[in-house]
Amino acid sequence: MNFEQHSPWYAVKGAEEIDSPALLVYPDRIAQNIREMLAIAGNPDRLRPHIKTHKMAEIIRMQQKAGIRKFKCATLAEAELLGQCEAEDVLVAYPLVGPGPARLAHLQNKYPATRFSCLVDNLPALETLEKTVTAEGIRLGVFMDLNVGMNRTGIIPGPEAVALYLKMDAAESLDCRGFHAYDGHLRNPDPQIRAKDCDAAFKNVEALRETLLAQSVSVPDIIAGGSPTFPIHARRPGVELSPGTTLLWDARYGEQFPEMPFLVAATVLCRVISKPASGICCLDLGHKAVAAEMNFPRVLLPQLPESSQISQSEEHLVLTADPAELPPVGTVIYAIPMHICPTVIKYPEALIVIEGSVRGKWNIAARDYHLPLKGPVF
């Protein structure tokens, strides 16, 4: 594709010099997505964005410049990156087992300016965490992880949750900070139905909070939702919001939730590498280059809207289309991932595209599960 004055937003000058496949990110579009997040939230203090989608220090800092102080993450590598970025408040929203509690305690010692917290959804995990923190002579924050219907992690709101929260509140070495309620299963494309489902699930969270307040037990914060329910929870006063995919967006969310105002801000540059038969072509976009856990299509191909994706292997994505519609071997193709989060981690770095030109690279700094930590090895 030649870059012309009216080329699509994703087109890059000098694409013929870029090795493929390559991850491209577009900071101007990321900045617009941050502005949209702030407009929905109404106040940066209500936002606790998840960094699992991008895992990049530069995008963390873009959010910090916009006034966002609190963040959520899923791995200790992401927590370490947030500590390096001097984030004020970090929640590791993933069960910490094995050496996890000790590693988080080490991070709290290493980055004292950052307030680290984690999740608990059962008594043995709470006891292990309290024992670890006490031995380290530090304090950690703890949120109770609630199962509001996703059935992945969390404790179901009810008597057992009340009992667990009371023990959390009584733990001397922990700061009991409230609830975490992730409702990632609520993805109805109809925004009214999605809102109704979200409100129904959240009623159990509110009821649990009222039960604890009646016993004079404080629930300081409630962190709720992900990207699909972000605008719904934004209507609830006092609830912290934790979208993540909103920063880069992807084709799947764009199709499912067209009413949401976010822009796709990442693509994968690939090429036609073969045309082995009439009506068939192959791209260098295999499992190793783009998220492949879903059914086809794995990517949206704006340049090949009439093509169908029929097979994929480690290094190849095979398409079929009218032979007249298939471009020559060597043609640069821009692919918009259907699922951006597991696509990003396939690359050590992203090329930064500003005004149609590559202006540098950003490291996917928290790509691995653990960053090298100085000090004790756990």
Rank of each mutant, 00 (worst) to 15 (best):
I223K: 03
A224P: 08
A224Y: 04
G225L: 06
G225D: 13
G226L: 03
S227M: 05
P228Y: 01
F230C: 01
I232N: 01
I232E: 05
A234E: 02
A234I: 01
R236G: 00
R236P: 00
P237D: 13
P237N: 10
G238I: 01
V239E: 03
E240T: 00
E240G: 00
S242I: 01
S242K: 11
S242Q: 15
P243W: 11
P243G: 13
G244Y: 04
T246F: 06
T246G: 15
T246M: 07
L248G: 06
D250I: 11
D250G: 08
R252M: 09
R252D: 09
G254F: 04
G254K: 11
G254I: 03
E255T: 13
E255I: 09
Q256I: 12
Q256G: 10
Q256N: 10
Q256S: 13
Q256R: 10
F257W: 02
P258T: 09
P258F: 09
E259F: 07
M260K: 00
M260S: 00
M260N: 01
P261A: 14
P261Q: 13
F262S: 08
F262D: 11
L263C: 05
L263W: 03
L263Y: 03
V264Q: 12
A265D: 12
A266M: 14
A266N: 06
A266T: 10
A266D: 08
T267V: 06
T267L: 00
L269A: 15
R271V: 08
R271G: 08
R271S: 12
V272H: 07
V272D: 08
I273L: 05
S274I: 05
K275M: 07
K275F: 02
A277E: 15
A277H: 10
S278P: 04
S278T: 14
G279F: 14
I280V: 15
C281I: 10
C282M: 15
D284W: 05
L285Y: 12
L285H: 11
L285F: 12
L285T: 14
G286C: 05
G286L: 06
G286W: 05
H287K: 07
K288V: 04
K288R: 09
A289D: 13
A289W: 07
A289T: 12
V290E: 06
A291L: 03
A291S: 15
A291Q: 13
A291V: 04
A292R: 00
E293W: 12
M294A: 07
M294S: 06
N295E: 10
F296W: 03
F296T: 08
P297A: 11
R298E: 11
R298D: 13
V299F: 04
V299W: 05
V299K: 03
L300C: 06
L301C: 14
Q303S: 14
